[in-house]
Design a binder for these strands. Structure first.
Lengths: 199, 199
DNA sequence: GTCTATAGTTCGATAGAC
DNA sequence: GTCTATCGAACTATAGAC
């Protein structure tokens, strides 16, 4: 048997999820219509129901699950590949994150989740925590144990890093600023590690 | 003539804008329906068209304009009231910002703006820059000129501070973390000023 | 200033041909 | 796997009574 035939979950289905991911992550659940997704794919709206028989909500859930799984794997990979030194690990993480679909987690938790169901917000928060925050918190805690950095609730630091990613991407896409993405990452990590104060 | 009669632009109109602001800022343009706003006010949906004859889009634009104007005034006031020292000024700014409606500027620029018109994104970016970024950038530049901090593109630092505000509010409202809002602000400013590295 | 009633539009979803 | 056609629901907006 061929390898590809055994592994693949149908190519066109992946393409549907790709299109849905791009739009859902960028504009949010309510802003994106099934017609938007279909138009991006160059098919009719009804064709989406072959791939997602339970409709828009199923599509969103699968997009989120796949996205979070990919984030966790990607983060763990780049962290493992970097030297055990906070600066290198954070740089690797930030460089990986800016290459991914922009994910506005606050919007997902505060707005998107409310369109799915009451309990989905909690489930989503668990996924976000597990996939995106946990790997970074592990890195910060390890650096604390190595004595590289002072003790401090790692949530605060990780929140700062994740929050600023979307600004980097926005500055980059809107050309509202003349600094390159790599320079911004470098500056941000410089601030987080050593602060801005002259000494 | 009475003072209040001369100044007020109708009380009920303000209440409409308050309700619209609360919902638009929290969930975004597409997620909020005219019925949601009317329900929050305890009136019927059609009643909103007395206050905003041009409908939902007008309501959103006026909410944004009023919000940005209030932000700019508030920021300038707390900055002016604080000593000319970066730590005090940033603390005052952060404490003010966490008391305001959560504003997801990235969502506004990337998602909400697309429902209004092509050109509104640029207009919105100008408002955000003028009202929220500019006052903070001024503070950072002044600290640089006083020699308090090293030179660095102020956009990066200001972006970090604005980005992390929503995480503070989210952590606070979801009780996902056991640190108080004031402690988080203190820690964040500590990180930005002095970094996390032991020395 | 707010109401009821409703027109017009858009959306999510289903049925059935190919 | 994708299409056309269409239904019912939800939404924005308007008309006119009070």
């Amino acid at each position: 048997m061929t390898v590809s035939a055994a592994v693949k979950t149908s190519d066109s289905r992946e393409r549907v999820l790709d299109a849905a991911e791009k739009l859902f992550m960028e504009r949010g659940y309510a802003s994106v219509t099934m017609r938007d997704i279909a138009n991006l794919l160059g098919v009719r709206q009804a064709a989406l129901y072959y791939h997602a028989p339970q409709g828009k909500e199923q599509l969103f859930r699968e997009v989120v699950d796949r996205f979070m799984q990919r984030q966790q794997q990607g983060l763990e990979d780049v962290i493992a590949a970097a030297p055990s030194h906070l600066e290198h690990q954070l740089t690797a993480v930030m460089r990986w994150l800016v290459t991914q679909s922009p994910v506005d987690m606050i919007r997902m938790l505060r707005s998107d989740a409310s369109h799915i169901s009451e309990s989905y917000a909690a489930e989503l928060l668990r996924k976000v925590d597990q996939s995106m925050m946990r790997p970074l918190i592990t890195v910060v805690l390890a650096a604390q144990e190595r004595g590289e950095i002072r003790p401090l609730d790692p949530h605060v630091m990780v929140g700062m890093l994740l929050a600023v990613i979307n600004w980097i991407k926005y500055f980059d896409s809107s050309q509202a600023i003349s600094v390159s993405t790599d320079d911004m990452i470098h500056d941000i990590i410089g601030v987080v590690l050593h602060g801005v104060v002259n000494r």
